[in-house]
């Protein structure tokens, strides 16, 4: 079996970090913190590399005259402009805040606001496309939760709030607990695979 140096490094660092959680040995604690600091530094560098990669891809798209070059041009101009303003004036300056409050927030907020309309359309279409018992239960549950979440403007539906609480705390939480258990088992399995060298996500 081929056992390259990178696998040995990954397994060694993983074992040291893991042991630092369980063993109260000063050397291990110091090593663990030092390794995590390296990881955060590398993550910050990776963010810069990602920005550079994004710029390169769209620059090539723009210069090669491909379809969608206009959008690449808009992205590059926005990137350079924001980088220049925030880099020159600082992130808390009025100009930087103006870009964030008047461009970034409205754009992202509008995209998420569309989700509300899309979910209502999906709820309306669900019974037309698939009118099964499960679909009816799903729609009724969604309507109960929505009605009990917002104000009813003077309309009193007895037991509605209690029903919402029961749905949120019993069936929904049961599903969430199962989800959390599954996530935990998955993380343990993934970590063990990396530690024994079976999974090598760091390989190029």
């Amino acid at each position: 079996m081929k056992f390259p140096f990178s696998v040995a490094v990954a397994i060694g660092i993983g074992l040291i970090t893991l042991a630092g959680y369980f063993l109260n040995i000063p050397v291990l604690q110091t090593l663990r913190m030092a390794l995590i600091e390296w990881a955060t530094t590398l993550a910050a560098v990776a963010l810069l590399v990602g920005i550079a990669n994004l710029f390169t891809i769209h620059w090539n798209k723009l210069t090669s005259g491909k379809v969608g070059g206009l959008y690449s041009a808009i992205l590059i101009v926005s990137l350079v402009l924001t980088l220049g303003v925030v880099g020159w004036f600082g992130p808390t300056h009025t100009y930087s805040k103006w870009i964030f409050n008047n461009v970034q927030l409205p754009v992202e907020g509008s995209l998420l606001a569309l989700l509300a309309v899309i979910l209502v359309v999906a709820g309306v279409r669900l019974l037309r496309l698939r009118s099964s018992m499960l679909s009816i239960i799903f729609i009724i549950t969604a309507m109960v939760i929505l009605l009990a979440t917002g104000p009813l403007f003077g309309i009193s539906v007895p037991g509605l709030t209690e029903l919402r609480s029961w749905i949120a705390q019993v069936p929904a939480m049961a599903g969430a607990r199962g989800l959390l258990l599954g996530i935990g088992l998955g993380i343990v399995a993934a970590g063990l695979r990396v530690l024994i060298g079976s999974d090598r996500p760091y390989r190029g």
């Binding site: 509300a116 979910l119 209502v120 709820g123 309306v124 309507m143 979440t149």
Partner: peptide
């Protein structure tokens, strides 16, 4: 609340 009420109403009618 008005938005939620309208969403529920639309789903109910549909």
């Amino acid at each position: 609340g008005v938005g939620l009420f309208m969403a529920v109403l639309l789903m109910l009618v549909a």
